[in-house]
Simulated scan of single mutants.
Amino acid sequence: MSDDAELAARIAVTARQIERYCRRNEIAIAADGAIDEAAAAKVLGYAGPDALRRQAADGVNRVPFRLLGNRRMYRTVDLARAIERSYNGGG
Rank of each mutant, 00 (worst) to 15 (best):
L79R: 03
R54P: 06
D4S: 15
D4A: 14
K42P: 00
R75H: 05
N25A: 10
A51P: 06
D4C: 12
I18T: 03
E19I: 11
R81P: 07
E84Y: 01
K42A: 06
M73W: 09
T14C: 10
R16T: 13
Y46P: 01
A56T: 09
A47T: 13
D50N: 13
M73C: 08
S86G: 10
D3T: 15
G45H: 03
N70W: 11
Y21P: 08
V63W: 00
I27R: 08
A5E: 13
T76W: 04
P49N: 04
C22V: 09
L79E: 00
V60F: 06
G45Y: 04
A56P: 03
R71M: 09
G48W: 05
V60W: 01
M73H: 07
G33K: 08
R10Q: 04
G69Y: 05
G33E: 03
R20A: 12
V13I: 12
R53D: 05
E37M: 06
D4P: 07
R54G: 04
R54W: 07
A5D: 12
Y74P: 03
A15R: 06
R71D: 13
R71C: 10
A9W: 04
A30T: 12
R23H: 11
A31N: 14
A41G: 03
V63Q: 01
M1T: 14
V77F: 10
A40C: 02
R75E: 05
A82V: 07
R72F: 02
A9D: 07
G90N: 10
A31K: 12
R20H: 11
A34W: 01
G91E: 01
T14L: 05
